[in-house]
Design a protein around this nucleic acid. Sequence first.
DNA 1: GCGACAG
DNA 2: ATCTTGTCGC
Length: 221
Amino acid sequence: MKINQHHTWPSTVEEAITIQEQLRSQVITEDKFKEPVQYVAGVDMGFEADGTISRAAVAVLSFPDLQVIETTLAHRPTTFPYIPGFLSFREIPAVLDALEKITRIPDIILCDGQGIAHPRRLGIACHLGILVDIPTIGVAKSLLIGKHEELPETRGSRQPLIHRGETIGAVLRTRTGVKPVYVSSGYKVSLPTAIDYVLRCTPKYRLPETTRVADKLASAR
DNA sequence: GCGACAG
DNA sequence: ATCTTGTCGC
């Protein structure tokens, strides 16, 4: 797929904050995509050579049967460090490279990280969605910000994630008796819809099949 | 000022 | 993220 030009990449946290604050107005948390969804994609990162090289993997799966349709891989020098709240600046450049190689444009992308459940409401899922104009959902393995009540052990249980009196996402149990995941709107996908798709993409394991496939590729040598 | 802190 | 073996439990 073709990717239009975007903003320049920052070299400092100050510049990154400016970009996030400027992009946050472009975030859309309402459902704005056509159904039925035929393809869902997962993105994941890996690093080589002491972290100096970033490796991005994209996996496109059919929906709802979740069969692998296509996968791509891309490498590029790592230019931004990992700083909580600024993950997208470290990972998106390589992700865009991998997405450019994709033939089947996915209807929704499930990102490894937060959506609006972010200090400035611009987690990696929102950032990526805005840049490529594809609906995204944030599915993180751990908490960045927010608080929530305890939730039942059964799959499907959920609790709102609250930050500054605002619901920014949900803690969702995708598998009974297993640690939950943190779901939030990325771009053009509402929270209820995001939860629905995450559950439909996790028929067997804690993490979505999309990210599991991408993860396997991003980790392979 | 003191903690917390996606991958 | 990454470094790393075995081990507990369904």
